[in-house]
Amino acid sequence: MKIAMVSTRDVPVWENDHVAGLAGALRALRHNVTVHLRQASEPEETESSLGGFVDSLRDKWSQDRPDLVHAHSWKAGLAAVLAAQRLGLPVVQTFHGLGPDRDQVNVERLIGREAALIVASGEQEVLDLAAAGIPRPRTVVVPRGVDTVLFQPRGEIARRRFPRRVVAMADSSPDSGVADLVAALPWLDDVELVITEARAPREAERVKAWARRFGVGDRTRVLGPNARRNLPALLRSADVAAFVPRRALWDDAALKVMACGVPVVATAVRGLPDAVVDGVTGVLVPSQDPKQLVRKLRKVLKYDVFRHSCSIAATDRIQARHTWTVVGECVERLYAGLLERRAGDAVG
Rank of each mutant, 00 (worst) to 15 (best):
R38H: 05
R27H: 01
V240P: 01
I318P: 03
L339W: 08
R213K: 13
T94R: 07
D128W: 09
L339N: 13
A336S: 12
N32C: 05
E123I: 06
H36P: 03
H96L: 05
H36N: 14
V107W: 10
P153H: 11
A227P: 03
V283P: 01
R144I: 00
G328M: 09
W187V: 00
H322T: 00
Q93D: 08
V276N: 04
E205C: 02
D17N: 12
A120F: 13
L82K: 10
I312Q: 12
V294L: 13
D345R: 15
G155I: 11
V142R: 02
A204F: 00
V269G: 08
I3G: 15
N230H: 11
E47V: 15
R30C: 05
R321E: 11
V33S: 10
V149N: 09
L78P: 01
V54F: 14
A79V: 06
R136E: 10
E192F: 10
L150R: 15
V326D: 05
V107K: 07
D171V: 09
R246I: 01
D251I: 01
V142W: 00
H96V: 14
T267C: 12
S311G: 11
E329G: 15
A343G: 11
L272N: 08
T196Q: 10
I3S: 15
V216S: 09
D55Q: 08
S287D: 07
A266M: 11
A336R: 14
V142F: 04
A184N: 06
T8L: 00
G88Y: 06
D218T: 12
R165F: 09
V305P: 01
T196R: 08
W14A: 09
P90K: 13
T34F: 01
V191R: 14
K208G: 03
V347R: 14
R199F: 14
V182N: 02
T220E: 10
E42P: 00
T94W: 10
R212P: 00
R27K: 15
Q93C: 05
E340M: 11
K291S: 13
L223Q: 06
K302Q: 10
H31C: 04
E192R: 01
V13Q: 12
L231I: 11
G224W: 02
S172N: 11
E42R: 14
P263H: 09
T315H: 15
D239A: 07
G122A: 08
L255I: 09
Y303L: 13
T323K: 08
R333V: 14
G97W: 06
K256V: 00
T34M: 00
R341M: 07
I118Q: 09
M258V: 09
L249Y: 04
D59M: 09
V141Y: 04
L68V: 12
T323Y: 09
G145M: 09
L338K: 05
D289I: 02
I195Y: 13
Q85C: 06
A314C: 11
A242H: 05
N106W: 07
L150D: 01
D67T: 03
T267V: 10
D10L: 09
A242R: 03
R9F: 04
W250T: 12
G77Y: 02
P290M: 10
G51N: 14
